[in-house]
């Protein structure tokens, strides 16, 4: 079985996150990493693992402009394809699933 596609936000993107737009923003994260990795996972029929630990702050605008935009572009498949890994931000995962994706 092939390994899942993975993203570690702290090492692959930034430890200090921004807001909706601007440096280290949700928009930049979506354009440079999230969208590309998601398409890679989808094309190879794999899941996308996203590690949230090590980076902060996960503001509501960052989440909306990254994960929210992904959901608006690709729909329900996002919910089934993405696996979150975190020890410290389980509540952020809940916010993404219940508020951003409303699933």
């Amino acid at each position: 079985m092939e390994k899942n596609v993975s993203i570690n936000i702290a090492t692959d993107f930034s430890k200090n996150l921004g807001v909706r737009v601007g440096p280290s923003s949700g928009e930049t994260f979506f354009e440079e990493i999230l969208n590309k990795k998601y398409i890679e996972a989808k094309d190879t029929n794999r899941q996308l693992e996203i590690n949230l630990d090590g980076a902060s702050p996960y503001g509501s605008s960052f989440l909306d402009q990254s994960f929210g935009k992904l959901f608006r572009e690709y729909g329900k498949d996002v919910v089934d394809r993405i696996i979150f890994k975190t020890q410290y931000f389980n509540w952020i995962v809940d916010i993404i699933k219940q508020e951003i994706w409303k699933s």
Partner: peptide
């Protein structure tokens, strides 16, 4: 908590 989060973490 979620209400506080949504309003207070929109901007830098």
């Amino acid at each position: 908590h979620t209400k506080l989060y949504k309003i207070s973490t929109e901007e830098i």
